[in-house]
Amino acid sequence: MFERLSDTAREAITSSADEAARRGDRRIGTDHLLLGVMHDPAMAGVLGRDLRQARAELADLDLRALKAVGIDVGSFQPPGSTSKPRRSSFSSGARAVIPRALALATGERSRRITTGHLLLALIELAEPDPAAALLAGLGVDTAEVRRCLAA
């Protein structure tokens, strides 16, 4: 399955591992896959949001959740980098995205899984999936994204 990934899609997966490590997460989730896909400027363009905004929104979702359970982290600023990158595994949600993207590629008679196919698979997800929560937080219109990618 992985051998069908285009070069850009492969880079997106690698970037998603970096994004997980950067955040201090042990597994690559669908939210990290979304950030990885956004490393492709074309996909950030389709979403109308950039990486910086997406990372800030994830940090904000965390702060709001902590506050909701009564934890105020005050003025703490994340130092930005955590331990050296490890080989991280995929969450079960993230693992399911690759075969879904492959099915979408096959449906289009495309030999390669592109970042567009990965993004299409990601916007199909529904909350409480982490990527869906991030897209909602960013106010992305997923129907519009689907139209853009179909064009």
Binding site: L66, A68, F76
Partner: peptide, 15 residues
């Protein structure tokens, strides 16, 4: 999500 956020904070503070 708050639990995940605490894990992430712990990783960042630890590092």
């Amino acid at each position: 999500r708050a639990v995940g956020a605490l894990h992430r904070l712990a990783e960042q503070v630890e590092a």
